[in-house]
């Protein structure tokens, strides 16, 4: 499913002294089956943007086209948003805060059943989703509130995956986890993206994750799209990112330091440790020949 935003603007608290422009002139297209990373500072409009992707917010100007549906800025109430929300799942930051049922199973089934999936099928989906997030089936009958923080996070994620969305929006899904948990969860989402062809939109502060997983990167700044492109394009101009006060991946930062200190030039940004090692090796040997 393709999602397109055209000239989207969003204002909070219109017509009050607290009115505040959160998004303006946002244009972008998320192609089906792609992995997009959205990066930017807190307050750059990332969170507001992602809430437009399944009509939790409606633009105050412009339009959002989600699959066949067009959401415009108008007063009239949109009907039947459920079909959109089933197709576009969102994993919010600290998703464990949304758990509420007596058992893990019921909680995971909650989403699918809201979208009209019969109970037996929902339970089946719950079992699959639980496996996907790397948890044992035994915990299905446990209360979600008896689990550890990391397990709660996974259960909450399973609750969204079980909805079988076409598009998955992830808002900092690994915030607060330890390094192992972080890597496991990110790898799991990537696998899901590859296996099921789910379009994935990752909102993140981690340039490593953006470089490692994304096909496209969108940089948000002051409520609008500042830049978009492939990771190689984005990170080949690291100065722009640094100017915005954003980070670059460790590997790119290290390349920059080497360029500055040793005067050697790299043909392209290294986006993984392996690439960087190869590039350094090559540069050192080139130095040898001089």
């Amino acid at each position: 499913m393709r999602i397109t935003l055209e000239d989207v603007e969003y204002r909070y608290s219109v017509n009050t002294p607290f009115e505040h422009l959160a998004l303006h002139d946002v244009n972008m297209t998320i192609e089906p089956g792609t992995y997009t990373a959205v990066i930017g500072h807190t307050g750059s409009g990332k969170s507001t943007l992602l809430q437009h992707l399944n009509v939790l917010l409606r633009p105050t100007k412009g339009r959002v086209i989600i699959g066949e549906r067009t959401i415009r800025a108008q007063k009239k109430k949109e009907k039947n948003l459920k079909s959109i929300r089933q197709k576009v799942g969102i994993v919010f930051q600290f998703p464990e805060h949304q758990l509420f049922e007596e058992t893990v199973e019921k909680d995971i089934c909650f989403g699918p059943m809201n979208f009209g999936v019969p109970e037996a099928k929902a339970k089946e989906l719950a079992r699959i989703a639980l496996k996907q997030v790397g948890l044992e089936q035994e915990i299905l009958k446990k209360s979600p509130f008896d689990l550890s923080g990391g397990q709660m996070r996974r259960v909450a994620i399973a609750g969204v995956i079980a909805m079988e969305p076409d598009v998955l929006v992830l808002d900092e899904p690994t915030a607060g986890l330890d390094p192992r948990g972080r890597k496991e969860i990110m790898d799991m989402f990537y696998q899901l993206h590859k296996d099921r062809g789910i379009s994935t939109i990752l909102v993140t502060h981690s340039m490593e994750d953006a470089a490692r997983y994304a096909d496209d990167i969108i940089i948000m700044h002051k409520g609008t799209v500042y830049q978009k492109g492939k990771p190689e394009e984005i990170f080949s101009k690291p100065d722009q990112l640094l100017e915005l006060g954003l980070d670059v991946p460790d590997t790119v930062r290290f390349q920059l330091m080497l360029q500055r200190e040793m005067g050697i030039r790299f043909a392209r940004p290294s986006l993984s440790l392996e690439d960087l090692v190869a590039d350094i090796k090559e540069a050192m040997e080139r130095g040898n020949r001089l």
């Binding site: 330890d178 390094p179 192992r180 948990g181 460790d250 440790l273 090692v277 350094i280 090796k281």
Partner: peptide, 20 residues
């Protein structure tokens, strides 16, 4: 142990492995 090591250490080790 579920931890990680700093980037510079990781890179240094990887470079050493290539024979630098």
């Amino acid at each position: 142990l579920g931890l990680d090591i700093p980037f510079s250490v990781k890179l240094s080790k990887a470079l050493q492995k290539t024979g630098l």
